[in-house]
């Protein structure tokens, strides 16, 4: 690794001040699972690394007036063990479990997974299907960006060099929304997603009519994406087997997968149809066991 200096932030204010001082040649390190792996193979490194791993005020999982707040430094292991998240969003627990292995889940953070901006990120689809909001701190203050607008392209996000991803907010109206996540990789452990899909939906238990269906796909476009046409196909209709299968086919037409050494574009497209249908089925199963607001 090329030489760099390290400054350690004490809290989020300090982290923002340090970033402002050292941007644009600074990089932020939290869990380090992506940053250090990248820097070891990079011909040019940052002059300064701002270590935010000790910033305690970004490690909380709390219910606030705005919704469920997950601090950017919450590790994947912490998500898996959080009673609140297990209760409200088992899909987030499942998504966290598909990331890397125990050692990387103990280090890696939710915010870190998002700032990589890779289309195959395992945390992305579930959060996007829950219309998560990214809370960003900078010397200018605090701003919120809807998850769907956060990613600009592969490894590109809206974050400016002096901005810090501080918090991930699942809005109040989606608390407890039935959600399901599926990842298809070539192995169970330590595999990148060929395709991942998440679906969230409210279902009226008496009429089976669904509302606010949200479908999000990973690894099949330059960023994690929503599948708005598939969503529109379902909204306000009964969630039948046919409707879910058709939503899967529509989602496949909305994906823009590439061929690479892991899989062909055609195979990925087929997977989108199947995983979307199954994610909807999983969310529907959950919906049958709980009512809105419950």
């Amino acid at each position: 690794m090329r030489a760099f200096d390290v400054v350690t932030a004490k809290d989020s204010r300090h982290a923002v001040a340090l970033l402002a001082e050292h941007a644009p040649t600074a990089k932020v390190i939290a869990g380090g699972t992506d940053l250090l792996a990248d820097l070891k193979f990079s011909s040019h490194g940052p002059a300064m690394v701002v270590d935010i791993s000790r910033v305690e005020d970004l490690k909380a999982i709390t219910i606030t007036d705005e919704g469920l707040s997950i601090g950017a430094l919450v590790t994947h292991t912490a998500i898996m063990r959080s009673p609140i998240i297990n209760d409200m969003f088992p899909a987030l627990v499942h998504a966290a479990h598909t990331i890397g292995a125990v050692q990387t889940r103990n280090l890696g953070t939710l915010g870190g997974n998002l700032v990589t901006g890779v289309p195959s990120m395992d945390s992305g689809p579930t959060l996007m299907a829950l219309e998560a909001i990214i809370v960003i701190l900078s010397p200018a203050g605090r701003r919120q960006v809807p998850m769907a607008e956060f990613f600009l392209g592969p490894r590109k996000t809206v974050l400016k060099p002096d901005e810090l991803l501080a918090e991930i907010l699942i809005p109040k109206q989606n608390l407890g929304k039935p959600t399901h996540f599926l990842k298809f990789g070539l192995r169970k452990g330590q595999a990148l997603a060929l395709v991942s899909a998440a679906a969230s939906v409210w279902v009226d238990v008496d009429t089976q009519i669904c509302s606010a269906p949200r479908i999000s796909l990973g690894a099949v476009a330059p960023t994690v994406i929503r599948a708005p046409k598939a969503e529109a196909h379902l909204d306000g209709r009964p969630l039948t087997a046919d409707a879910m299968a058709e939503a899967g086919r529509i989602a496949a037409s909305e994906a823009k997968p590439i061929s690479d050494f892991r899989a062909s574009a055609g195979y990925r497209r087929e997977l989108v149809a199947v995983l979307t249908k199954r994610a909807l089925e999983g969310a529907y199963e959950l919906a049958k066991t709980k009512r809105r607001g419950a």
């Binding site: 390290v6 390190i29 869990g31 380090g32 699972t33 250090l36 792996a37 690394v49 270590d51 125990v102 050692q103 990387t104 103990n106 280090l107």
Partner: peptide
């Protein structure tokens, strides 16, 4: 448990 290669 952690990967010691991924921590400073």
């Amino acid at each position: 448990s952690v990967n010691s290669c991924l921590m400073l």
